[in-house]
């Protein structure tokens, strides 16, 4: 167990270092002088000189990298070349919006996905299974941003049931906050719930044919108790695994969802940065995403080894 975790920790750290190098080199891969790119529209010699000094562009690449890492470790993610705002303070305003969106979507997707998956497995060969399977397939195949557009068109613009865009912080007005975030959460959760449903169904089917479930049935447990107590426990592992695997999809999905619903989150900040060629912000966004991904997957593995004792003994998380 300890070797496994130490191993995973070391691997995660190594990946993080590699990712930092990639992000660092990414900006240097820009065609032309990075100082020009970082300066944006203001191309006076003084500005360029200041940028060269600030980023240490006149020094050797390894020294620059040292600077880069040192700044990050001190919480300095650079400054937007468009607004002059430190990227770290931009993140502080944007991230809570995205986190709320993502966490709510995961919770919703888990409830719907696990529920539908268990029903599909328990009602095998009956209409309920067909309905659940069909919905999952559609959930996987429908472009979510399009679903968002249609939802805005028919649920917001036409009927006024929901606001079409905008955001109200939870601390300001909890009711309005939920009102604004509900549609985006449902849209972002659709794909995830389909994935969770399919995995839960397959894991539950596997569990239902496993020896220990047969024993439980043989000793006279009611079917609902068998599923609830034995088969469902496995779905916990499924959800945790998927949370790690689907994190990339979730981040990508959040960016699009925020764009459609006009939520002032991480995704909107990212897209604005791309269209304004705000390189320090792009660089920070990519780095923060990669770090979050690596950290959360490490946590998932940690959790995974706590839930499933086979991982601790077996060594390798397949």
């Amino acid at each position: 167990m300890r070797t496994y975790l130490l191993n995973r920790a070391w691997q995660s750290l190594l990946t993080l270092i590699l990712a930092t190098v990639v992000v660092f080199l990414g900006v240097r891969a820009l065609p032309g002088d990075p100082a020009l790119a970082l300066a944006g529209e203001d191309r006076s010699p003084e500005t360029l000189a200041a940028i060269r000094l600030q980023y240490g562009l006149d020094q050797s690449i390894p020294v620059q990298f040292g600077h880069f890492v040192n700044n990050i470790l001190h919480g300095d993610l650079g400054t937007s070349i468009r607004t002059g705002t430190p990227v770290s303070s931009m993140m502080r305003t944007a991230l809570p919006v995205t986190l709320q969106l993502a966490v709510f979507a995961i919770v919703l997707a888990t409830i719907v996905g696990v529920g539908a998956g268990v029903v599909a497995a328990a009602k095998r060969g009956r209409p309920a299974e067909w309905v659940a399977n069909g919905l999952a397939l559609i959930g996987l195949s429908v472009p979510h941003f399009w679903l968002g557009l249609v939802a805005i068109l028919y649920l917001a613009v036409a009927t006024g049931l929901f606001p079409a865009s905008g955001f109200v912080p939870f601390t300001e007005n909890p009711v309005e906050n939920l009102h604004h975030i509900l549609l985006p959460v449902v849209i972002l959760g659709t794909g995830l719930s389909a994935v969770i449903m399919r995995q839960t169904r397959s894991a539950t089917l596997d569990a239902l044919s496993a020896d220990y479930v047969r024993t439980a049935k043989a000793k006279g447990l009611r079917p609902s108790a068998v599923i609830g107590r034995h088969a469902l426990r496995n779905s916990l592992i499924v959800v945790v695994t998927i949370a790690g695997l689907q994190l990339g999809e979730l981040i990508s999905g959040a960016v699009v969802t925020e764009q459609i619903f006009g939520l002032p989150g991480f995704g909107k900040m990212t897209l604005d940065a791309v269209f304004q060629r705000d390189y320090p912000v792009i660089q920070a966004v990519v780095l923060v995403t990669a770090t979050a991904y690596i950290a959360i997957n490490f946590l998932v593995d940690l959790l995974y080894s706590l839930i499933d004792p086979r991982i601790r003994v077996g060594g390798e998380a397949a």
């Binding site: 590699l18 990339g248 981040i251």
Partner: peptide
């Protein structure tokens, strides 16, 4: 395996953002 982990750390949209920027 480390290379795989590294690639995984960049979600496709973020990769696309980076590529579009460069």
């Amino acid at each position: 395996s480390r290379f795989t982990d590294l690639l995984l750390a960049f979600p496709f949209l973020i990769l696309a953002v980076g590529l579009a920027a460069i």
